[in-house]
Write a protein that binds this DNA or RNA. Structure first.
Lengths: 242, 242
DNA sequence: CGCTGGTTGCGTACTACATACACAACTAGC
DNA sequence: GCTAGTTGTGTATGTAGTACGCAACCAGCG
């Protein structure tokens, strides 16, 4: 079967299904216990990487479209946060048409996909372990990348990630990451490593604990993490949002 | 001459000139010394008010389009800040076509102007006195409104203003309004009234002065405001941005 | 010209929060 | 039982935010 068939089918109905000249890109952050990671994918026959993105259907809001894109790629059902609209003059244009061509679909010269595209940036904090990656048919690779060592990216996706990181760091400074990025049960030092990975610098153990507890963003469990050849750490879980 | 002629001319070339299904709305804030005001306009034959807005031309970025809209309406040349993209399902649609009809332009049923429109919200802080209002041909009224007493608005423009106000209040809490909203020379109590109008509550005179001075957002002038039947207040000006 | 009302400019005490650091408790391995 | 390594808890210090008192000053009036 023609590997480009699904893409061709998508392209055949694109003018009927989605808002033209508009796209959205999701910056999906996860945490593997060591570093902050971002979910990137590589389209067939392309060597640059891209953010998971998509278009907005006529029968769904921007927010709903972002949720759908996230769900299609990760099987997750959760809210995303819109953080910026990217509308520079050179967005799209020269780079999109060759990309589609590499995947086996010829975009006519006059088509909007060959022209300028405005993109809305969305941000998601997800539980690493709960993600079930779904490549689909035209994605060759999809994996997590350490945010500090990202591969070459298409279009302005690198700038989009940088902007999302800025937004994230502002939230981290006021301890507003919550436990969205953590596994269900975690220790205090593990949560601290997340904040340190986002902020990019070390924090004081004792002050961090004090702050997190007084803000009530975690709930103490009557369990401990053993087998670490040192004192067992208490386990916590993210407190359900009010 | 047909009063709808300019609008008809605009409509005739709209498909060639601008990105379809996309618009932008500018929330322009000014300060009259008493209350925080927002610039609104009323299109011909409509009874609801609207934000100054427009569409994005193919040869300009989102930011540049926002600057153009602001310049066309106020003759001001300055930056705006993008704060949110509004893309609910019911944006546009039923309300836009009757509005154009009231102004004398029949939008065909299938045209994108009769359908859903995503809008990018921009925010501007301008000097009240420097604004030179320009109505154009299809705007019947254009004036400042106290943000606390706004008229009935079209579409979701009321929610857009609310969101812009939230953004503004966040900035005010960390004294980041600067002097953009003040006249060239102003006293400390006058600046304080601006912050109070934005925040919606009173501030302490002495702490306000201390904070503003230590942040260095104003420059003291060797002049005083006299004729107030009480002690003359020192004049300041906004310090040029670094 | 002195007195008065009202406001501005300046300083000080108090409180809350963030930061810096010390020590005991505990687990696994030998 | 001893040790290495880390976690849990407490306390001291510094810095920023808040509350408030008082003198300086301008215009108007008797």
């Amino acid at each position: 079967m023609d590997p480009a068939a699904p893409l061709k089918k998508f392209f055949a109905t694109i003018d009927r299904d989605v808002i033209p000249h508009l796209s959205l890109d999701c910056v999906v952050f996860g945490f593997d216990g060591e570093a902050l990671e971002v979910l990137l994918l590589r389209w067939r026959n392309l060597d640059r990487w891209s953010l998971p993105g998509g278009f907005v259907r006529w029968d769904e809001s921007l927010d709903a479209a972002a949720q759908r894109v996230l769900r299609e790629r990760t099987s997750l059902t959760q809210n995303l946060e819109q953080f910026h609209a990217f509308g520079a003059l050179d967005r799209g244009g020269s780079e999109v048409r060759p990309a589609f061509a590499a995947m086996g679909v010829e975009v006519p010269e006059g088509h909007w996909l060959a022209g300028r595209i405005v993109s809305i940036g969305y941000l998601a904090l997800v539980r690493f372990a709960e993600v079930r990656l779904n490549l689909g048919n035209v994605v060759e690779e999809c994996r997590w990348w350490d945010v500090r060592a990202r591969p070459p990216m298409t279009l302005d996706h690198d700038a989009i990630i940088t902007r999302a990181l800025d937004t994230l760091r502002i939230r981290a400074r006021s301890f507003q990451l919550g436990g969205a990025l953590m596994p269900e049960k975690f220790t205090m030092p593990e949560l601290q490593r997340l904040y340190e990975a986002v902020l990019g610098h070390a924090l004081d153990r004792r002050n961090f604990r004090k702050k997190v507890l007084e803000l009530g963003i975690v709930e103490q469990l009557p369990e401990f993490r053993t087998g670490q050849r040192h004192r067992a750490a208490n386990l916590y879980r993210a407190r359900p949002e009010d």
